[in-house]
Nucleic acid binder design. Structure first.
Length: 870
RNA sequence: GCCCGGGUGGCGAAAUAGGUACACGCAAUCGACUUAAAAUCGGUGGCCCCACAGGGGGCUGUGUGGGUUCGAAUCCCACCCCGGGCACCA
């Protein structure tokens, strides 16, 4: 007799080997019929209600391969794998691929330190990720594996770049970047610490204007905003994206500087406060600032102020708490609504990147303008009053004006113009904008917070931008047949104020593809977010050498039905991928607008309440956990510990608890399988079931209510309850309660094992394994095979028998005045009157009613009766 | 400051539609098995009262205070605390 000990280290590699040998999780792009296979015989004829028929694309965000996978990866892929398995067994063909986001800074910094080529350190990391993903038993179609640093991948990243370039969606312009004067290099924002110092040398970082590449994502602001309503994403992620896009409605209003004869439009969300504008402020970066100040007494002061502001770090400048600073420009502009001359200032609280880089300042109704006005002793005028008393008959007088300034709320206009005074400010806003429009002094306008995407990096380890600079022809795309532009081999990765690629002279100097003259390659590389903005498309046709994808392959799979990843990508990655999808659709390459139909964001895994980090020494490595308890335990634990969208704290004791559960399940199942007789019993059973598998698709695993009684009926009911519960929970990502339901089922199996028929127990345990398979595939496959001789992943998802979900009696809760006073057994088909009678007759109810008058009886059939007494 | 989440036993959590609060797991504790320990299996699980052998009854109780309702963890109002995101965006 075999020793009944759960041994994940024997079980897990055995099943992994089978799945790898048989390429179980690979799917082709051909429709099932076209492959001549038809539906596999076990596929349900009609999909379950709410099931996933046909093709389904389940995708987890691709990992950035650095070192080894961490617990966060384990959680993400455990969630994704559960969904993939569930959908397969509901009858879908599931695409579930894997790849690596392989370009990026850490590998390059490592190369600067050690001289090891980023390609080599990345390859090593990828190998480690791949090995561990296999050891976790996740059901990946490995035939589509990719890494974004492979020329066969970034060839198409470059192709997309050129498509955007040709469409005018990729362009070059000057932009402010972080610059370290000591290292003579541009720095990524992440390389600047909180005090605005260079990570490497500690020098104060400056802001410099340099030519950079951008993608015109702002052209898509409106669509990126509007289309959020069509996708099944968590509301908080949509909110984050909406805030990031930052749509504001308002008006553009023109202020004129008569002395210089120049118009300055400003954007305002509050045209209703135009009559309260008492000064005008420009951003230090505004190109006209020096011109305006020239020849005024403030020229020198303005010059110094602007220079200082430009070298300030974002940290220093971006602080709303700091006192307002600025310098007069010595000029005035005309307020178009009342002709007043108001003074112009330059101040760093105005941003060049938003609106027009200039503002009208209304200190009476804006906190920032108020602070500036107080600092510079400028007039503050009230034009809106919160008083909402009836001004319907007469305009408000000074006595009606109440409240503190600045006042930013709604109210009624005062001190403006007779035809606007007395109007509620929202009405006045529309009226004033209409009036400005008629006068040609302004018009309604919409502004976005979203900025164009800066994609160039002066870095080595990224996809080269496939552009050639020719003095005669300008910027020339690298011809398609010369793609990819491969990264040159270089010795020195250290950035020196330009991309390390610039040092590869032989690589840089080329002939212009248009005129044949000597020209130079673009030496910047692309932001790694570009690589990850289209990888989900490439998976659909990962081995295509002639195109980024075959449209037919995308039709088979896209859009992604369920995307899974960390909420830290709620804005950047998810926004960029949406932008790529829309831009590529506009260019005729895609026929859908959104890449990810549904999104699930998983919570962080902490240890002792803190984020895991090497410096804290609290990192839990998946490899060590799996070595100790196996992948099934690790995966189940991470899903059992709590709702997967919430943060979870890693607890060794909790892991042990789940391990005990799997051990008990495996042991009881192994004993039950053996109890059936010889080791062949299971297969005998399985083959006999094949004879009449038309009886039910699950043949051997059917247990109807007929002829069952006592504990057998109870256990069969519990089994069907668990089937129903787990099915529902899986649909709503409630993996924790799904696993708890299987635990309950096992507890009943253990309790009733001696008192039920063998067949009842076997059915319950095989069902438990079947339900647990999405979370713990190895042990579930093992148990299922032992009990039935079948492969669980080839079985359709079990269906609960309605007849067994219903009880013929239940515990009726008897309340008096809303408090539970007794519980009695009630028949499931008892009438309302019978339930009332039952409740009134319950012993403890009688004690509480005791002579009092029953004024009301509330009956909730199936649940309770509440007697209201007085 | 603004926008999201969240606050339930000693702990992680559950309660899917306003209807039995605390499923499942951990920890603790008692018992069984054992020479013993581990493992395993079973019981217990706030406070008070009665019976004190099994058992029965009551009172609290879901961050705080109010409200709606026969009935509120769940809905409404006000507030407190924790976590995250954004933050001079005119």
């Amino acid at each position: 007799m075999a020793e009944h000990r759960y041994d994940p280290h024997e079980i897990e590699p055995r099943w992994q080997l089978l799945w790898a040998d048989e390429r179980t999780w690979e799917v082709s792009n051909e429709p099932v019929e076209a492959r001549g296979e038809g539906r596999p015989p076990h596929t349900p004829a009609s999909p379950h209600a709410g099931g996933f028929a046909d093709n389904s694309y389940v995708l987890e965000m691709l990992p950035y391969p650095s070192g080894e996978p961490h617990i966060g990866h384990l959680k993400c892929y455990s969630v994704g794998d559960a969904i993939a398995h569930f959908r397969r067994r509901l009858g879908a063909r599931v695409l579930h691929p894997m790849g690596y986001d392989a370009f990026g800074l850490p590998a390059e910094n490592h190369a600067i330190k050690t001289g090891v080529h980023p390609r080599d350190s990345t390859a090593e990391s990828i190998a480690s990720f791949r090995r561990q993903f296999h050891s976790w038993g996740i059901s990946i179609d490995w035939s589509r594996e990719l890494a974004t640093d492979e020329p066969s991948y970034y060839r198409w990243t470059q192709w997309i770049f050129l498509e955007l370039f040709r469409a005018g969606l990729a362009y070059r312009k000057e932009a402010a970047v972080q610059w370290c004067p000591n290292d003579q290099t541009v720095l990524a924002n992440e390389q600047v610490d909180a005090e605005g110092r260079c990570e490497r040398c500690g020098a104060l970082v400056e802001v410099r204007q340099l030519e950079q590449w951008f993608f015109r994502i702002t052209d898509y602001a409106e669509r990126l905003l509007n289309d959020l309503q069509d996708i099944a994403w968590p509301e908080h992620v949509k909110t984050m994206q909406r805030n990031w896009i930052g749509r504001s409605e308002g008006a553009e209003v023109t202020f004129r500087c008569e002395e210089l004869d120049v118009d300055y439009p400003v954007f305002t969300t509050r045209p209703d406060t135009l009559f309260g504008a008492t000064f005008f402020v420009m951003a230090p970066e505004h190109p006209d600032v020096m011109r305006l100040a020239r020849g005024t007494p403030y020229e020198r002061e303005v010059h110094e102020y602007v220079n200082h502001a430009l070298t300030e770090t974002n940290e220093e400048r971006g602080n709303a708490e700091k006192p307002k600073t600025g310098v007069p420009l010595g000029r005035t502009v005309t307020n178009p609504v009342n002709g007043e001359q108001i003074p112009m200032y330059v101040a760093d609280y105005v941003l060049m990147e938003y609106g027009t880089g200039a503002i009208m300042a209304v200190p009476g109704h804006d906190e920032r303008d108020y602070a500036f006005a107080r600092a510079f002793a400028l007039p503050i005028r009230r034009v809106i009053t919160p008083a909402i008393d009836d001004f319907s008959n007469k305009p408000p007088t000074a006595a009606d004006v109440v409240g503190e300034l600045p006042y930013t709320g709604d109210g009624v206009l005062v001190n403006s113009r007779p035809d606007f005074d007395g109007l509620p400010n929202r009405e006045a806003l529309s009226a004033i904008v209409a009036w400005l429009d008629r006068e040609g002094k302004g018009h309604a306008s919409v502004n976005y917070r979203l900025r164009d995407w800066l994609v160039s990096r002066q870095r080595y380890w990224g996809a080269p931008i496939p552009i050639i600079h020719c003095e005669r022809c300008g910027m020339v795309p690298v011809p398609d047949d010369e793609l990819p532009v491969e990264l040159p081999e270089i010795e020195d990765y250290t950035p020196k104020g330009r991309s390390p690629l610039a040092g590869a002279e032989e690589w840089v100097n080329v002939k212009c593809p248009e005129c044949g003259g000597s020209a130079r390659r673009e030496t910047d590389t692309m932001d790694t977010f570009v690589d990850s903005s289209w990888y989900f498309l490439r998976y659909c046709d990962a081995r295509n050498e002639h195109a980024a994808w075959d449209p037919a392959a995308l039709r088979a799979w896209m859009p992604v039905d369920q995307y899974i990843g960390g909420v830290e990508h709620a804005i950047l990655h998810l926004m960029y991928a949406r932008f790529f999808t829309k831009a590529l659709a506009d260019l005729g390459h895609l026929d859908f607008q959104e890449p990810f139909q549904a999104l699930f964001t998983q919570g962080m895994v902490t240890k002792d309440g803190a984020k895991m980090s090497k410096s804290k020494g609290n990192v839990v490595s998946p490899a060590s956990i799996i070595e100790r308890v196996g992948a099934d335990t690790a995966r189940c634990y991470i899903l059992f510990v709590g709702p997967p969208d919430q943060d979870a704290d890693w607890s060794e004791e909790g892991v042990e608890g789940v391990h005990r559960f799997l051990s008990r399940l495996w042991r009881l199942a192994a004993e039950t399988a053996e109890h059936a007789g010889s080791p062949g019993a299971a297969s005998t059973f399985a083959s006999s079931s094949k004879v009449d598998d038309d009886a039910s698709p699950a043949g051997e695993l059917t247990l109807g209510p007929d002829g069952l009684a006592g504990d057998d009926l109870a256990l069969a009911r519990k089994t069907h309850w668990a089937i129903d519960k787990v099915s529902g929970d899986l649909r709503r990502f409630a993996f924790n309660t799904a696993i708890a339901a299987v635990m309950e089922l096992l507890n009943d199996c253990s309790r009733l094992r001696e008192s039920v028929q063998h067949e009842t127990l076997r059915f319950a345990l095989a069902s438990a394994a079947s339900l647990l398979f999405p979370f713990a595939p190895h042990v579930s496959a093992d148990i299922y095979a032992r009990l039935t001789g079948e492969r669980v992943w080839e079985q359709p998802w079990p269906q609960a028998d309605e007849a067994l979900l219903e009880q013929d009696s239940y515990e009726l809760v008897c309340q008096v005045n809303g408090k539970v006073r007794d519980r009695v057994q009630a028949s499931a088909d008892a009438s309302v009157q019978e339930l009332k009678d039952l409740c009134r007759a319950a012993p403890n109810v009688l004690a509480h009613v005791d002579g009092k008058e029953i004024v009301k009886e509330i009956v909730v059939p199936g649940k309770l009766v509440n007697l209201v007494v007085r």
